[in-house]
Design a binder for these strands. Structure first.
Length: 939
RNA sequence: GCGGGCAUAACUCAGCGGUAGAGUGCGUCCUUCACACGGACGAAGUCGCAGGUUCAAAUCCUGCUGCCCGCACCA
């Protein structure tokens, strides 16, 4: 058993690493293949990039998943949380190329094979970082099953999937216009295109107009463009067929000024918009998506003018060899020189950029591999319609459906070296294509040995789409696949709903014949305090490890804004986190548990989680509270008997706390089941702090001080049980702290129902209905006790009565139950009000003058303070109380006076109102009597 | 342009038919023997605006206003 000096305050940096080490040396989180699949529970982790390091988004995802997973495990499910990383094609290649650049070589100097070897080397060296960081969060994954998308078995699955889809005609190669990233030197899919917002008030470009001369010299036609350099690839000018300005020109030709080409004027109602520009538009089918469609409609030639490096090719004539942006200026100058320029105006356009490199994409005509999506989408749509996969929050269903029904074919080939190489070979002999599970040595069609493999690799998302089943051994029908597929839950950020979730769903249905997951939980994005997305540019990035371990201001700012100067970074940081004024010393070590509890406390429908450090601090305080309450309780519960021998609770206080526990258990289980971790954590927080600590512990104190009585023994057993249950409730959210505290509890309290001692809290049963029962009468009686204590405290606070331990509290009530409660709880009342004596007086007695007065739960509370009473203050607070009660009772009376209400509203609602009205009237009457008495004294 | 979401206390957010809740913050008090990363008490909200449905609306419906996010946006 771990030991510690149990010092205060709670120090997560001492406890958490110790538990991490214990977990890693254990087999606690090992799932077993086989058994009843209905008892299995599994989540496939969304694999982070090997290149990545932990960010707040990961922390959120790990928190949610681990909480759900630990809850399932404690609930007796055969639980698998399978970890892994993906190879992140572009990102990884960029990282390694950057490293090579520092050594003065390029990947082309190295050659493909050596480069790939180099990436593996890099992966062996730095690829494990993200796993280490996962461990810091307390993630209870099954480490021996960890997968990497480039592992041999995973690669085999990818190849199998590709070949099958090809054989089924669902993968094909086509020469189409694609998005080319010059910086990344690869094609990307349409989903990876990032569109800048075009703000007309902030032009980011210019609209340049120039004239084409009609070939017969009879005039000119003016077109406008934001990309003048593309005019060397123009193969038509389109006008609207109904446009009176140009109608007559359709069918005629213009002479290209720079290349030897005549181009036609065509009528195209889809492309040309008479209200835009001059109404005439140049058509460059090989370099613009709209023009491409027009080109296909009109049967225009498609002339590629670009090299892959962004320079213009031979088709560009005198502009050949120039970079696209250099050529743009050159073309403009040349047009001006030729007298064809017709002016320019500032213009705002939505640049299409590469999501990863952010360079402006070039539409380019290139042969690529595609997956035909429509046939795959249909079963997925049906699965969601039929509820075989359910989204949470459910609003995402609509978004999902909208995208799925308008789905486009997926371009899956990438011009990279790092990744799964396309298993296609082209025959130089017959021109055929061989797609094969095994590397072929000859063309299957003509037998020629002159075959060459397609150099491209597959989109990383293609392998990710196979993740939930490939990680379980597919294409083999392994025991793991049979036990854990379909997985129970897919939990990830809503931003990759299309990239990943939709594609997994389609592939799972297609290859395994069932959905890959039963439920999908989509979480939001962690933002800074002001709601801005975290980015180094904004200087508002917070490294979760800094929150967990603590960090100096220098470290925080360095992580927030990268390489920016400290002062500048600090300024940005303070802007992003305005409430953090006392940040001069940096972050304290909040600990992983506090970070987790904080992240879990947000409802899933929040699209943004604004990082509020003060709230995080509140949860660190909560950790400290748990620690100290446990420490204190342990001094009293050291010798409790086994839970199975626990006698029935002796007092209302015990029945009350057990009832509250029962309610909390219900709320916690419901919260997890419904993916409302915010409700589960709130219920546990409420129970532990306000009910267990503020009330029950305090109610216990006078009992414990009375020596080893039967009452004390009973209270000790109840306290032990509640505390032990509370740690079990807490465990999915705060694994380290709860495990540590639980390990210190007496063995007897930790025994499972069958009498055995669980090896650790993570393997103990999650609290359920058998752990505590609701007790409404006890709740009502303790409610009375609390109301009287609070009423007395309020009188003292408001009248400034400070005589600690010296006051007498007189209570008067005609209600026998209330009287019994107060008699039984006398010691508690005295302690919690800090009074020296509690006197029960008959309601029929004349009220003593010179006593502070209040009414709570139908009980009159009198605190005699003759000679010290501040008549003005007393009278004022009585007046306030009367006003408050009268206002409420007037409203109630009015409503009860409404015949429609009384006849139509449910009887219990009306009865409740009547009772409340009676209580209020009674209260007002008593308060008024007190005012009268005050008047007598004053007069 | 199409679709979706959000507007509740100073801040961050719950509640989604029975006359407002939490955390933080704020004010007053407390060196009470688990915890000042604590305790007690308190102040604080026309629940975006305007209509409608209902005995009853922050909660359901319609419209408006203001933010946010997808998709499509070409010269």
């Amino acid at each position: 058993m771990p030991t510690t000096d149990f010092s205060r305050p709670y120090d997560p940096s001492e406890v958490e690493p110790r538990w991490r080490a214990l977990e890693l040396g254990s087999t606690w989180y090992a799932a077993h293949d086989g058994g009843d699949p209905a008892q299995a529970f599994s989540i496939a982790i969304p694999p982070p990039n090997v290149t990545g390091s932990l960010h707040m988004g990961h922390a959120l995802m790990l928190t949610i998943q681990d909480s759900i997973v630990r809850h399932a495990r404690m609930s007796g499910r055969n639980t698998l949380w399978l970890p892994g990383v993906d190879h992140a094609g572009i990102a990884t290649q960029i990282v390694v190329e950057r490293e090579l650049k520092r050594e003065g070589v390029s990947r082309h100097d190295l050659g493909r094979e050596a480069f790939i070897e180099r990436v593996w080397e890099w992966k062996a060296r730095s690829g494990g970082r993200i796993f280490e960081q996962l461990k810091v969060m307390g993630s209870s994954v099954d480490w021996p099953r960890a997968k990497f998308t480039m592992d041999p078995d995973m690669s085999r699955a990818v190849r199998e999937a590709f070949v099958r889809l090809y054989e089924q005609g669902l993968i094909y190669r086509a020469n189409r216009l694609v998005n080319w990233s010059i910086k990344a030197q690869t094609v990307i899919s349409d989903l990876e295109v990032e569109r800048e917002e075009a703000d007309p008030s902030k032009p980011n470009s210019e609209l340049f107009s120039f004239a084409y001369l009609l070939a017969d010299g009879s005039g000119e036609i003016v077109v406008a463009t934001t990309r003048p350099e593309t005019m060397v690839g123009d193969t038509a000018i389109a006008v609207h067929p109904d446009d009176p300005r140009y109608k007559h020109l359709i069918g005629r030709e213009v002479q290209h000024p720079f290349v030897d080409r005549r181009i036609p004027i065509v009528g195209d109602g889809e492309l040309a918009d008479p209200t835009k520009g001059t109404g005439a538009v140049k058509v460059t089918p090989a370099h613009d998506f709209n023009d491409y469609e027009c080109g296909k409609r009109q049967g225009l030639p498609m002339i590629n003018i670009l090299n892959l490096d962004g320079t213009l090719n031979a088709e560009a004539g005198r502009f050949a060899g120039m970079d696209r942006f250099v050529a743009r200026e050159a073309v403009k100058a040349a047009l001006a020189e030729a007298g064809l320029a017709r002016g320019s105006v500032p213009h705002a356009i939505p640049y299409a950029r590469c999501q990863r490199t952010h360079d402006i994409l070039e539409p380019l005509l290139l042969p690529q591999w595609y997956v035909s999506m429509k046939p795959l989408a249909e079963p997925a749509i049906r699965a969601v319609e039929e509820g075989r996969t359910v989204f949470a929050p459910e609003e995402w269903t609509k978004t999902f459906m909208h995208w799925m029904t308008n789905i486009q074919d997926w371009c899956i080939s990438r011009q990279l070296w790092w990744g799964h190489q396309v298993p296609a070979w082209y025959c130089k002999g017959c021109g055929g294509t061989v797609v094969s599970r095994e590397d072929p040595t000859a063309c299957t069609a003509c037998g020629s040995a002159a075959i060459e493999r397609d150099p491209d690799v597959l989109d990383t998302w293609f392998s990710s789409a196979l993740w939930p089943f490939a990680t379980l051994g597919w294409p083999d029908a392994t025991p793991a696949l049979q036990t854990f597929y379909p997985t129970s839950v897919m939990e990830t950020g809503f931003d990759i709903l299309f990239f990943w979730v939709a594609r997994m769903l389609m592939m799972g249905l297609h290859f395994v014949g069932d959905v890959p997951f039963r439920r999908v939980l989509l979480h939001g994005m962690v933002c800074d305090e002001t709601g801005s997305k975290m980015s180094k540019v904004k200087g508002n990035v917070i490294d979760p490890l800094d929150l967990i371990h603590g960090a100096t201001l220098q470290e925080i700012v360095a992580h927030a804004s990268g390489s920016a100067p400290f002062d500048e970074g600090l300024k940005k940081f303070r802007t992003a986190y305005p409430s953090v004024s006392a940040m001069a010393e940096g972050f304290p070590a909040f600990g992983a548990d506090a970070v987790r509890f904080y992240l879990a406390s947000h409802p899933p429908q929040s699209r943004k989680i604004n990082l509020h450090l003060s709230r995080l601090q509140g949860y660190r305080d909560f950790c400290n509270k748990i620690w100290n309450a446990t420490r204190f309780a342990l001094t009293h519960i050291g010798d409790v008997g086994p839970r199975t021998q626990r006698v029935a609770p002796e007092s209302d206080a015990e029945r009350w706390i057990l009832s509250r526990l029962a309610y909390t258990i219900e709320a916690a289980n419901r919260g997890v089941a419904e993916f409302r971790l915010d409700e589960a954590t709130a219920a546990i927080y409420q129970f532990f702090w306000y009910e267990l600590c503020d009330w029950f512990l305090e109610l216990c104190k006078p009992v414990f001080e009375g020596g080893d009585t039967p009452a004390a023994r009973s209270h000790r057993a109840t306290l032990a049980h509640c505390l032990e249950s509370a740690h079990r409730l807490l465990h999915p959210f705060m694994p380290h702290l709860s495990s540590e505290c639980w390990s210190h509890l007496p063995e007897n309290t930790r025994l499972a129902a069958d009498g055995t001692l669980p090896e650790t809290l993570a393997l103990a049963p999650y609290p359920g209905a058998s752990d505590a029962t609701r007790d409404e009468p006890a709740e009502r009686r303790i409610g009375t006790l609390q109301a009287v204590i609070e009423g007395a405290r309020r009188i003292c606070a408001e009248l400034g009565i400070r005589a600690a331990g010296a006051i007498t509290v007189i209570v008067r009530t005609a209600d026998p139950e209330a009287r019994a409660v107060l008699e039984a709880g006398e010691a508690q009342v005295l302690r919690l009000v800090r009074a020296k004596e509690l006197v029960h007086a008959p309601v029929t007695d004349a009220r003593p003058s010179g006593a502070a007065f209040g009414v709570a739960a139908g009980v009159e509370i009198l605190i005699p303070i003759a000679g010290h009473i501040d008549a003005a203050a007393q009278s004022q607070r009585l007046a306030t109380d009367i006003a408050k009660a009268t206002k409420e009772s007037t409203g109630l009376a009015k409503r009860l006076g409404n015949a429609d209400y009384v006849s139509r509203a449910p009887a219990d609602v009306v009865a409740k109102d009547r009772a409340r009205l009676d209580e209020l009237n009674d209260k007002v009457q008593r308060l008024q009597a007190a005012v009268a008495l005050l008047g007598e004294v004053a007069g």
